[in-house]
Design a binder for these strands. Structure first.
Lengths: 207, 207
DNA sequence: CGATAGTAGATACTCCGACTATCCATAAGA
DNA sequence: TCTTATGGATAGTCGGAGTATCTACTATCG
């Protein structure tokens, strides 16, 4: 298919497609002559993925590209994907630069309570500590029960994810599903949480 | 205190503070003469809040401002805050424009299973449907058990939030904690989920 | 008292990310 | 044939989030 058809099938305007090609997010089509190339289903699929990660997941193009490269390159050995590929994802937010005092310990305590193994230099460990520090800097006392609820929910979600992914043998498919599930899962969860909060606060208002 | 001291106390550079003043995110100081104004703790606090919401929560300045206005104006009656103020938050992502077919029904089914009351024209209801549509457009079959796990986790989180907030009588404080808890809570949860996933996938790799 | 540094506010400028628009030489299709 | 589309390259746009500069003026140190 030609680029205009690719545009129609994917819903992305031609100039954007050209841009993604330039930026290396989309693999080039099979060239049939100096100024003709053929695109196929893989391009449609990739475009949908790009738009899902950026529009719904809120990732920047740069983050999106690095995830796509991870998928393409089978960057990680089998199951280590969630632990490595996705660790690089920012999930929004410019670099803060907050000093984290005893918050690393709190982060570790939460992880230990859930039985998680956490690499000491894991970016997420530091990000977590930083978030905890931010809460405290705003005068929120970080109730341990509340935090435990969050950690427990995270554990349950991870278990659900593992079950969902269980039985997949194709590494490519597994990688892609893991990435999508993780990135869009954040958005999904955020929506559900809002709905639950709205409902709960309404219930509390008129019990 | 003068603006330079405010800058030191808050960690934000003076030009940025001026910018926030211009943009109406930060209330002006008490003017003591044509070119002098005095700032106080409320400014320090507000600056920290702004930076927490933008840097850690990943909100745009525009979203941040609208939330701050909600807090300032006591926009919502008592407990309706989570249901209304926070509904406006985007949680990242440019407008997609995805057509949602039977996904609204699926969204409603999930909500009903958790016993949530959802306004039919709630933005979050549509956003949820859209996210579900996105998953499907990527060829993920949307396992109902998986979705239920997510909805259940959301419910538990909302309950934890309610408990945390319970007993607060000061409306201003309640509003602020709700906003912070919701926005930063997303980031917190995302971090925890990554840690849990990493650990779980590691466990599965070497059982 | 005067020189120096700091200040409020306004206006203008910069930088980056994510596109759009033009352009060119060529190829496909009516 | 000749109008339209294409691939690729280069340049331009636009919004968001700051920076920089400028102008009067004030505070304060020596």
């Amino acid at each position: 298919m030609r680029i205009s058809e690719l545009s129609e099938h994917s819903g992305s305007p031609v100039p954007s497609i050209k841009y993604y090609l330039r930026e290396g997010l989309l693999h080039r089509g099979e060239r049939t002559s100096p100024n003709q190339a053929r695109y196929d289903g893989s391009h449609v699929r990739r475009l949908r993925l790009i738009r899902a990660l950026t529009e719904v997941g809120g990732l920047s193009l740069a983050d999106t590209r690095s995830l796509l490269e991870g998928i393409d390159g089978n960057s990680v050995s089998n199951h280590d994907l969630l632990g490595r590929t996705l660790m690089t994802v920012d999930s929004g937010g410019r670099e803060p630069a907050g000093p984290e005092g005893g918050d690393l310990e709190l982060a570790d305590a939460l992880a230990e309570q859930q039985g998680w193994f956490v690499y000491p230099d894991s970016p997420m460990r530091h990000r977590l500590a930083q978030i905890l520090a931010t809460f405290r800097s705003l005068g929120m006392e970080l109730d341990r029960d509340w935090l435990d609820s969050y950690a427990e929910a995270a554990e349950q979600l991870a278990q659900a994810d593992m079950q969902y992914v269980e039985g997949l043998t194709d590494v490519d498919e597994l990688l892609e599903k893991a990435v999508v599930g993780t990135v869009l899962g954040d958005s999904l969860l955020a929506s559900l949480r809002r709905l639950a909060q709205a409902s709960a606060s309404r219930d509390r208002q008129r019990p």
